[in-house]
Design a protein around this nucleic acid. Structure first.
Length: 587
RNA sequence: GCCCCCGUAGCUCAAUGGACAGAGCAGCAGCCUUCUAAGCUGUUGGUUGCGCGUUCGAAUCGCGCCGGGGGUACCA
């Protein structure tokens, strides 16, 4: 926006700085931070500090420079006035021109407003990473929503994305499940709600396993059959793994997430073992078998102290570990795709693990290692900083949460909108419930622990997804009625030639922020920037809604305000879409 | 012990090194014959854990403490 005007401005600023021997690169423009004001502001302090002509204190000299710069700039096209105050130079936009450009840009680009066309090599984002034969709880939810949102933000910022999911389909937990199924549920087929059914069997297996040593021994014996390649065990594993995956797909469909490439632990186990043998041969790894495991003592190798620690690559009995499989998986990804970046959305407890894996790949002279990035996010706890544990029965299952939230949302929709048919009410309730559940998972910084509590998860008021959805509904409602009254906003260019209300100024200002914010959120991998933005945009719209009549305004004003409402609906809808939250037309 | 993260209003959280540190929830007082009250307005609430430093300027950067969480050789 304002390219020509900015060029003029930059030329004059440069001329001023050159004339006074000032470092022009130190002049940083930002938006004026006051509500209801439009424009750009620059602090003159950095220039004042380096000005050889300065005699007095910096703040005073900054003010002197601000005044001088203001004089040097004179009348600027696109700006209505300027002022030098407290060491800052403030340039105020010409009201109607700025609003016109801002609103029309949104209306021209519509559903693409804020997004860039995708170019270049893809970025892979690995997320979700659930284990088969186990249930999905709200802890997993943060990962899925965070990962999915990062994918959408990256795509909007102009990067092609490959969505990867690394499924834990082998290991002791699977054996517990298989053995328990074989013993108590043989021949049973999963019902409609696969996840619930598999979860119940898993809980059962956990209980027997931890309470009864003989049961544990039986499970381990079963594991040996697996290791020996027992055909019956393998067949059962394949069949039940499919059930589990079907259950996951139901959940992903519910959450509106999908994946381009699903990797299985079972797929990289053998390549991992082979790679470890190579590492031993090359002398990088120390083979202590059969008494000791295969390890790499990274600290010894790098001369560091208690930083990289010792990595165990293979158990002393030769069976694989998490670390065994990480290396071939990383390489497989780069082999399959020309990745610019390989991101791992995995919780913070695995930070050392990824640091080690990346370092080992570096030591192997594997060049793409530098393009791996671990996005470490904090976990979801219960009130009192209690970590969810299936053994203690403190896990909140995703299904239970969704069901409860949906029931509550349903009751509110029925009260507010009894005219809608049952099907529509159900869809709205689901959109609201899922939005409310997803929002807190991405609305705080990834480095901060999310505390889950039922009360706030089911609160559809205040700073929440339903608040933003509701603003979208209100905008939609105005536009629908305008349509019925035969006023089409998007077809008429907005002029904004009337004096704008403060609420309108703030709303237009918010609209303009989206494109840059998407770029920043992508660069910093921070979805929380967009949740905050969505809330602020909705709040600005609600202010506008309350203070500026649209349908009953004078014709010129009505037309322009309809354009503004239409633009806002796009911005709200686009933001919600990035967050993976539906934008209903009614609530 | 060592490494990483967090510490801002009673609670949950915001704030590209820049102007008066802002929201929501909770509390109190108001607003539905006007575009959906899942909304809005007003009000109460702060030595940004503590100290020193860097800077014209620090919640933000550095160092040192204090408090909480996580990780730290055969779990993932």
């Amino acid at each position: 926006m304002f390219e020509e005007e900015n060029q003029t401005l930059n030329q004059r600023v440069l001329a001023f700085c050159n004339a006074h021997g000032l470092p022009v690169e130190k002049l940083m423009w930002r938006k004026i931070p006051f509500s209801g004001e439009w424009g750009m502001a620059a602090p003159l302090f950095p220039l004042a500090a380096e000005d050889p002509q300065r005699s007095g204190p910096v703040p005073q000299h900054a003010q002197t420079l601000a005044v001088a710069l203001k004089e040097a700039l004179g009348e600027l096209p696109g700006f209505s006035r300027s002022e030098a105050v407290k060491g800052y130079l403030n340039l105020y936009y010409e009201t109607s021109q700025y609003a016109q450009e801002a609103v029309n840009l949104v209306l021209e680009t519509g559903e693409n407003y804020g997004s860039q066309a995708q170019t270049g090599d893809p970025v892979m984002v690995e997320y979700s990473n659930v284990n088969t034969h186990k249930p999905i709880h709200v802890g997993h939810l943060r990962n899925v929503i965070l990962g999915g949102t990062i994918c959408r933000i990256l795509e909007a910022s102009g990067k092609p994305v490959v969505r990867a999911n690394y499924i834990g389909d082998i290991g002791l937990h699977v054996m517990k499940w298989l053995y328990t199924y074989q013993r108590f549920h043989a021949g049973e087929e999963p019902p409609q709600d696969i996840m619930r059914w598999m979860s119940d069997i898993y809980t059962e297996a956990e209980r027997y396993f931890s309470e009864d040593p003989e049961y544990e021994a039986a499970v381990r014996a079963y594991f040996n059959r697996w290791d020996a390649g027992d055909a019956e065990v393998k067949a059962l594993w394949e069949k039940t793994r499919t059930w589990s995956m079907d259950g996951f797909m139901q959940t992903y469909a519910l959450l509106d997430e999908h994946f381009d490439r699903i990797y299985f632990e079972s797929e990289v186990e053998e390549p991992g073992k082979e790679l470890v043998e190579e590492l031993v041969k090359s002398g990088l790894a120390e083979d202590g078998r059969p008494e000791n495991p295969v390890i790499i003592d990274l600290d010894k190798m790098l001369g560091t102290k208690e930083e990289y620690r010792v990595v165990v690559l293979l158990r002393s009995d030769g069976t694989s570990l998490y670390s065994t499989k990480e290396l071939p998986l990383a390489m497989l990804k780069f082999k399959e795709y020309p990745l610019e970046l390989s991101i791992y959305v995995v919780d913070v407890r695995q930070t050392l693990h990824f640091k080690q894996a990346q370092k080992i790949l570096e030591l192997m002279d594997y060049a793409p290692a530098s393009r791996m990035k671990h996005l470490a996010y904090e976990i979801v706890n219960l009130p009192g900083n209690v970590t969810m544990s299936s053994r203690d029965g403190t896990v909140v299952l995703l299904d239970d949460l969704v069901r409860e939230a949906c029931t509550r949302a349903q009751a509110i929709v029925e009260e507010k909108n009894p005219d809608l048919c049952e099907h529509e009410r159900g869809e709205i309730a689901m959109a609201v419930a899922l939005g409310a559940i997803k929002y807190p998972m991405i609305s705080r910084e990834t480095t901060k622990v999310v505390t889950f509590d039922w009360e706030s998860a089911l609160d559809f008021n205040g700073q929440s997804a339903p608040y933003i959805q509701y603003a979208h509904v209100r905008a939609n409602s105005i536009l629908r009625k305008a349509g019925e009254m035969k006023y089409q906003a998007s077809s008429m260019a907005a002029k904004f030639s009337y004096p704008l209300e403060i609420a309108e100024v703030n709303l237009v200002e918010k609209l303009t922020e989206l494109p840059d914010l998407i770029q920043r959120a992508a660069a910093e991998l921070k979805p929380s920037l967009l949740t905050t933005y969505g809330y602020e945009l909705a709040k600005s719209f609600n202010d506008f809604y309350n203070s500026c009549p649209v349908l009953n305004a004078e014709p010129a004003q009505r037309n322009d305000r309809l354009a503004l409402v239409s633009a806002t609906r796009f911005a709200l809808g686009n933001t919600l879409k990035l967050l993976g939250i539906q934008a209903p037309d009614a609530m």
